[in-house]
């Protein structure tokens, strides 16, 4: 039983990471109806930029590497870079494509994904790097002593970060003028335009926020698995999360992430041995497929309101 809980909790916590990436997809999809395939590339770009700045900053400033100043400066610069990248994407790629069919936009973001990956590696190089956030990835001692369950303090940290991020976003969407405008734009572009909501400003804000979310996800993923190209594939785990949770729902992204994280680990441990293991790489997609058949709008997805 202890082992079961350990696997379950470990799964849930890694699910939080999936949820973080999924959040970025949800934001943009919600506000502009664009399925941004490049979100994974943005996560990779963010992590690589942060690590890159951490490497070059000491040289530029003439200070010792690994200091707090370098860390925060790199964080701020990476944040700025993400905002610039996101806004540029909106401005250069998506705005000229307004009013084009969904599939055109989708193809554009696929192209964008490869471009951003290339750009990131072009600037910072392609070698695998470690990312140090200063959080220990070790079991929490008192937890292990009392209950015998080993839970990494890093996973707990990631969960807290994700929780805070979601809470902030929820308040932003539901309580602020811009957040409301954002949801309004998601519902009906034309009507939003007619009451004076400037669509382009709103889209820019959404992309910037998605860029920021990608940075947070990139830092945590990077610290866990190292900053490398494979990050972009891990980010694709967000797809089953979205199908499960619903494309338009922030809470859906979180719950979907948790379910995917937990189920893939449990499946790997309990079902894996029966089929020779290694099922955690495809099990989430399989679940998503089943889910699509039963509830295509996802757990929390907004149903289309049709009055009959």
């Amino acid at each position: 039983m202890q082992f079961f809980f350990e696997v379950l909790i470990g799964g849930l916590l890694s699910g939080v990471l999936y949820a973080l990436v999924a959040l970025g997809f949800v934001l943009i999809y919600k506000a502009s109806g664009v399925f941004n395939f490049a979100q994974g590339a943005m996560v990779f770009f963010a992590a690589l930029t942060f690590v890159g700045f951490q490497e070059v900053l000491p040289g530029w400033l003439g200070v010792e590497p690994g200091g707090a100043a370098v860390f925060w400066l790199a964080l701020i610069l990476a944040c700025l870079a993400m905002v610039v990248l996101s806004i540029a994407t909106e401005r250069i790629v998506l705005r000229p494509l307004v009013n084009q069919p969904q599939i055109t936009l989708f193809m554009a973001t696929i192209g964008l994904a490869f471009f951003i990956e290339g750009l990131a590696q072009g600037i910072w190089g392609a070698n695998v790097r470690g990312l140090e956030l200063g959080i220990q990835d070790e079991p929490i001692a008192w937890m292990a002593e009392r209950t015998g369950i080993f839970i990494s303090s890093f996973d707990v940290f990631a969960a807290v970060v994700a929780g805070v991020l979601v809470a902030v976003l929820a308040v932003f969407f539901n309580r602020t003028r811009v957040g409301r405008a954002l949801r309004a734009v998601a519902d009906d572009h034309q009507a939003a335009l007619s009451i004076g909501i400037p669509l382009q400003v709103i889209w820019r804000i959404v992309w910037a926020v998605a860029g920021f979310v990608a940075l947070v996800a990139g830092l945590i993923w990077g610290a866990r698995n190292g900053v490398q190209f494979a990050l972009t594939f891990t980010a694709l785990k967000a797809l089953p999360v979205l199908i499960l949770g619903g494309f338009e729902s922030v809470p859906g992204a979180i719950v979907g992430g948790l379910i995917i994280g937990a189920s893939e680990k449990l499946a790997e441990v309990y079902l894996g041995p029966m089929v020779g293991g290694g099922i955690d790489s495809w099990f989430p997609y399989f679940m998503a497929l089943l889910f699509l058949l039963v509830r295509p709008e996802g757990l929390f997805g907004e149903r289309h309101i049709d009055r009959v």
């Binding site: 003028r177 409301r180 949801r183 309004a184 009906d188 009507a191 909501i197 309101i305």
Partner: peptide, 18 residues
């Protein structure tokens, strides 16, 4: 063209955006 997923009051509040 109401914002279908927003409440009536939220709809009204979006009108004050400008």
């Amino acid at each position: 063209h109401c914002f279908a997923h927003l409440t009536v009051e939220e709809n009204l509040l979006t009108g004050a955006y400008t």
